[in-house]
Write a protein that binds this DNA or RNA. Sequence first.
DNA 1: CAAGACTCCTGACGGC
DNA 2: TGCCGTCAGGAGTCTT
Length: 279
Amino acid sequence: MPELPEVETMVRQLRPRLVGRTVTSAAVHWPRTVARPSARRFREGVSGRRIEALGRRGKYFLFDFDDGRSLVGHLRMSGRLFLVEPGEQDRRAEHTRASFDLDDGRRLVFVDVRKFGRLALVRRPEEAMPALGPEPLSPELDGAWMATALRSRRRMLKPLLLDQSFLAGLGNIYVDESLHRAGLHPLRLSDRVPRAKAEALAAAIREVLTAAIEADGSSFDTFYRTPEGQPGRFQDTFMVYGRHGKPCRTCGATIRRIVVGQRGTHLCPRCQSAPRNRR
DNA sequence: CAAGACTCCTGACGGC
DNA sequence: TGCCGTCAGGAGTCTT
């Protein structure tokens, strides 16, 4: 699913083609896609506005307009942004939830099969985003930060790393990959992670996300494609995600799949030794 | 404060 | 062949 690397890839590919463009008109085909304001005011609000910058915060993407307002969006499970060339058929019209005509003749379309994705037009981006934790790739996210942050809570690592108010941008795939790389079991309690392991986790997250971005993200199912229409390549290097029953690429033990917090969770029982939390 | 259940959605897939 | 139940998952909300 789209996580930080996929959103970052999308923003990077769209940025050179969208900055400086003006939205001439917009349409909303599935009203619930627009979180705020109303679909009508959203349409009217973006029309005539020039895009000055594209950004990302966690898994959110942001368009800054020339009137100071911002379009804040989230892809959730199956959302994607594409550019449709002039005269080109929108092959995904069936699942297009919103579209934006641009002054260069292109059309930006928000496609979202499962309808979980959301768009908002706001004065300040914070109005459309909950309180988010730090960016995993920012300099402050070092071993010291992780050690302190883990100690300040008492939660299982898997749900904690999925919590966007703790750290912004990780989803199911990259949490599993990061925990495996750090040699940490997803059920381990955060305040029982040794200092050295906390540092290893900070490094693992940075390395996994960086490598994923370099590979244009992950495309393990039929959904995710970059705006250029290409699949990502990081799925080819998954160590645990979706590999249950297969041998660990590090030690050869059989990868297991368990459920934690209603989420499929993949781990190597040898590389990630089971915790003895028990209160 | 932590964690589990439930919800929103649709397509894919296994079973019969 | 085709119908049906189940699953997947980001994140908000409610309950335990």
